[in-house]
């Protein structure tokens, strides 16, 4: 057992010919921090469910820690830790009971399970609440408990499916800190899925972007930023006609443009420097936008660019 992940040509087709994942291939080295980035419904969760033995692939070769997921799912389960987005906990049991039970199911003796629970509760800062029913925990506490349960058996590979979605900044930082520590200090391989570009940027060595079941871009955060890192200038107009006109005037000015109804979005490097020129151009045509917004690219913006490029190539 090592900490690597190898996926070759993974395909998942659900009933009714719904293609959730279409021929995805990637490799993650032992000790690497890998992020799988994509919008809702891109195929992230399905991929994680397949890699963690919950769902069977339709096609493809998948090795987690050198073990074939199809041939030996139990072997895979012994070596991975999984915090799924929709993973729940039994709200009647206390945090301590849940961790102890988890440890017992991974083959710890009663005594070992007790010791392990004490360590983990300390680690995720839940010692004070260990003996309260987990149903009384706040969202952040529950997520921390979930992480502790995931770590019971010191997994070599950790799968985290949107671990910080819906968390407040403080809890998010706490989770980030802990997974960073696991990766840097314990050499745990991390496979993280997220919708947040910032999260992948902060944590991951390498990022794959998945859209509509396919990988559309891959590289380090820096590499991706260089190719995708435009600012988005968002203009809204009173009427659709005005927006239409504006999009004609501004055509070819930025790197890329999106136009829908009253809204025009232009992607360009250094959006703020670019702004005066843009406004002058509009002014000459007696067009004045209702609102102007300049922001760093959101994941949506990145996607629009990636998918547009895809279209152009076709």
């Amino acid at each position: 057992m090592d900490g690597s992940i190898k996926v070759k040509n993974l395909t998942k087709t659900y009933k009714g010919d719904v293609k959730a994942v279409q021929g995805v291939s990637f490799e993650v080295e032992e000790g690497e921090f890998f992020a799988f980035l994509g919008p809702n419904g891109a195929g992230k969760s399905t991929t994680v469910q397949i890699l963690t033995t919950l769902v069977k692939p339709t096609e493809g070769e998948i090795f987690v820690g050198g073990i074939n997921v199809k041939d030996n799912p139990e072997g895979v389960r012994r070596n991975i830790g999984v915090a799924l987005q929709e993973t729940g906990i039994d709200s009647v049991l206390t945090g301590r009971e849940l961790i102890e039970m988890q440890a017992r199911l991974f083959g710890f003796s009663k005594k070992e399970a007790k010791t392990r629970a004490v360590e983990l509760l300390e680690l995720v800062d839940l010692t004070g609440d260990a003996d309260r029913p987990s149903g009384k925990y706040s969202g952040g506490m529950r997520r921390r408990l979930d992480l502790a349960m995931t770590l019971v058996h010191n997994p070599k590979v950790l799968f985290l499916d949107e671990p910080t979605t819906g968390l407040d900044p403080m809890n998010r930082k706490a989770i980030w800190k802990e997974i960073k520590r696991l990766n840097r200090e314990e050499g745990t391989t991390i496979f993280l899925t997220t919708q947040y570009l910032e999260e992948a940027d902060q944590l991951a060595d390498r990022i794959s972007i998945i859209n509509q079941g396919r990988i559309v871009a891959e590289g380090s955060a820096e590499e991706l930023k260089r190719t995708l890192g435009f600012d988005a200038i968002q203009l809204t107009f009173e009427t659709t006609e005005e927006a239409e006109q504006a999009s004609k005037v501004l055509y070819g000015i930025g790197e890329n443009m999106e136009h829908s109804k009253e809204e025009v979005t232009i992607y360009t490097e250094n959006g703020t420097q670019f702004l005066p020129e843009l406004v002058r151009n509009l002014d000459e045509q007696h067009l004045s936008p209702k609102t102007i917004n300049v922001k760093p690219p959101s994941l949506d913006d990145v996607f629009i660019n990636v998918t547009n490029e895809e279209k152009e190539r076709v």
Partner: peptide
């Protein structure tokens, strides 16, 4: 209840 809360998946992810 376990299926709805997702605890069932959590149990399936153990070698139990």
């Amino acid at each position: 209840n376990d299926l709805e809360t997702g605890y069932f998946s959590r149990l399936l992810l153990t070698p139990s």
